[in-house]
Design a protein around this nucleic acid. Structure first.
Lengths: 116, 116
DNA sequence: GATGATCGTTTCGGAACCGAACTGTTACGC
DNA sequence: GCGTAACAGTTCGGTTCCGAAACGATCATC
């Protein structure tokens, strides 16, 4: 636990990071898409469509669409599970990893700039 | 500046908060809508459509639509500026203030739970 | 090998959103 | 007064997203 954070500081941090996301020319992802992306990159694999849908409490087509969009953006890829060919496992990509890394850096930077 | 935050912790925090937002039954706002809402509630007034558009580097219709949606949700209201009747000033609402406050609490809570 | 369950995807009508261009209103310089 | 600039909102065609339902493919069971 890295020291306390006051609500006003928390909101300021959120605002500043969202602000950077909106202003950046990177395609802006919806909350759901961000949730999927970060889950894939932070939680241990494997990640299937069904598991993601249940975890985020959204419908399966919503996950499929999110994967479509982010796949088009090169942020992740899909691959048939050869062990059980009904499953599709979501895989990370270099580009996706870089995007996530950039987000992390943005948060850290904005956090560092928070006023007392 | 409330103590350093490592990139892995920053991403975990972002993931956890986004996760809560997606799972909550509250209407999920896009990044732009969040940016508008937080700007209105954190930055000193007055907030006009044009100023918000320029600040976030998006088009005016995008701001108008965001205000339509969030107005429908009761998160903020519009009012003609009587001094200069061309302007519309965005005003805060009780419900919006509560929503922002909830977000702040969520961030603080998730931050408190961060692993070392 | 037929049956039923479990995958991810597709389809469907409806809703929200996008930027460019335009409209109507108001303020200001001349 | 008159013309111009600035403002918010609206219109337009096209894109994206939504959940419910249906779909085909695959596995497990008997």
């Amino acid at each position: 636990m890295p020291a306390e954070l006051r609500p006003s500081q928390a909101l300021r941090l959120w605002h500043d990071v969202i602000f950077d996301l909106v202003r950046s020319d990177q395609p802006d992802l919806s909350a759901r898409q961000q949730a999927v992306l970060l889950t894939v990159y932070l939680e241990p694999p494997p990640h299937t469509v069904r598991a993601l849908a249940r975890k985020l409490d959204v419908t399966k087509p919503a996950i499929t669409r999110a994967l479509d969009t982010m796949g088009r953006l090169g942020l992740l890829t899909r691959k048939r599970d050869e062990a059980d060919r009904r499953n599709v496992v979501v895989q990370r990509t270099l580009e996706g990893a870089l995007a996530v890394e950039r987000l992390g850096d943005t948060i850290v930077a904005r956090h560092r700039e928070l006023p007392l």
